[in-house]
């Protein structure tokens, strides 16, 4: 091969590489919206939120030594309603599931939970979304798994499906819970 011939092959080679890459990009299972969390393996943000149910404030300190699942929800959020039955099923699995009502009026949150059932162990109120910001929340619902040392280990964006809850969330929680 002369250099000139190699040079004329170059455009074809570049094009084929680009075409393969386009083909990969087209795979239907690719999720264009998924955004990995920047908070993975970082300590859970410090928070001290008023409780939705007149109880003591909800703070990250209360999670010490325990595996906690934190779910951001809001009554105005439609996907949260889709997710809700899955959370109710999780409640039966005896895991610690905290809810944080994100940018929601407390009375609306209460009404929502009274209507469809309360899956949460405890609930904090993040009225202005400030704590959500510290978590890196960019849309509700989002679900975080906190390990016993108080680090965020996993984030699920969007409504949890039964699939994800059973095959990803629960196994992770159980594995983290083992001493």
């Amino acid at each position: 091969m002369t250099p000139r011939r190699l040079l004329t092959l170059l455009p074809l080679a570049v094009f084929l590489a680009v075409a393969i890459y386009f083909a990969l990009a087209l795979r239907p299972e690719r999720d264009t919206q998924a955004l990995p969390s920047a908070m993975i393996d970082k300590p859970v943000p410090v928070f001290d939120l008023p409780s939705l149910a007149d109880g003591p404030n909800l703070s990250q300190a209360a999670a010490a030594g325990e595996v906690v699942v934190i779910n951001y929800f809001a009554s105005w959020c439609v996907p949260c309603r889709i997710e809700h039955p899955v959370l109710m099923a999780l409640k039966a699995q005896k895991i610690t599931l905290w809810g944080i009502a994100y940018k929601d009026k407390p009375e609306d949150s209460r009404k929502f939970l009274a209507q469809s059932g309360d899956p949460y162990t405890r609930i904090g109120v993040d009225r202005d979304g400030r704590i959500g910001f510290d978590f890196g929340v960019y849309g509700v619902p989002e679900t975080y798994v906190i390990d016993r040392a108080g680090h965020i280990r996993k984030r699920f964006v969007g409504p949890l499906s039964r699939e994800i809850a059973e095959h990803e969330l629960l196994p992770l929680v159980r594995a983290l819970a083992k001493p």
């Binding site: 000139r4 004329t8 074809l12 094009f15 084929l16 075409a19």
Partner: peptide, 20 residues
Amino acid sequence: LVLLIAAIGGSLTLYAIRAP
């Protein structure tokens, strides 16, 4: 994408053959 590969892949192949 298939159209792209046929049109551009084809013409660039032809180019690689004929241009030298």
